[in-house]
Amino acid sequence: MSGIGDYLASLVDYLDVNGTLVWDALQQHVVLALVPVVIALVLSLPIGYLAVRYGWLYHPLLNLSSLLYAIPSLALFAVLPLLLGTRILDPLNIVVALSIYTLALLVRTVADGLRSVDPTITQAATAIGYRRIRRLVSVELPIALPVLFAGLRVATVSNISLVSVGALVGVGGLGQLFTRGFQLFYSVPIVVGLVLSIALALLADLLLVLAQRALTPWTRAGVSTR
């Protein structure tokens, strides 16, 4: 018991001394993980829509997405400064790299979500007077929300874990605690980083689930009067 007690005591000591550092790392982690999700979501909507609207684009676009996702993350972090002309330690590299991965995931999600909408419903919408864009915004996207949220949850959680890899090229939110721990042969910062990273992922996932529940009440409507 005293072993665990001692360890907890050293955790508290560590946070006491390095509180600001941990807090900054956590904030950076949140920004680095979530900004790419927002960017990718905004980009994936039109791309996913095009893939569905023009059937011949579906396979090329989705294959390209899979290809992007297959690039090793560390290699991408290292190559991006060359392509973007950024400094090697620029957080922008991480944001761009993670945006690419998230985009690769979300394009498929958006395309599959839109394809999940029953064509009789989209046809009925057109037949009663919806124009294309309004139909997309007020009929197809809302009906695709359950599929979109499923993809968004995977992308968000995987981003929160991927940010740490950025520490190997100097910018990595909580990942810095891992590199520091390895350098010092000291496990406390690693445990702190791990716990916070997992807590962050769980929290983000929980928020997404709550948002989905609020936005898709019809999916929980019981079949009560049949």
Partner: peptide, 21 residues
């Protein structure tokens, strides 16, 4: 076309209702 359709009632098999509304 959209204007025209808003002036014409339309009923289909299976109703084609919007599940989210």
């Amino acid at each position: 076309p959209a204007e025209l359709r808003r002036g014409i009632g339309y009923v289909i098999q299976q109703a084609g209702l919007f599940p989210h509304r």
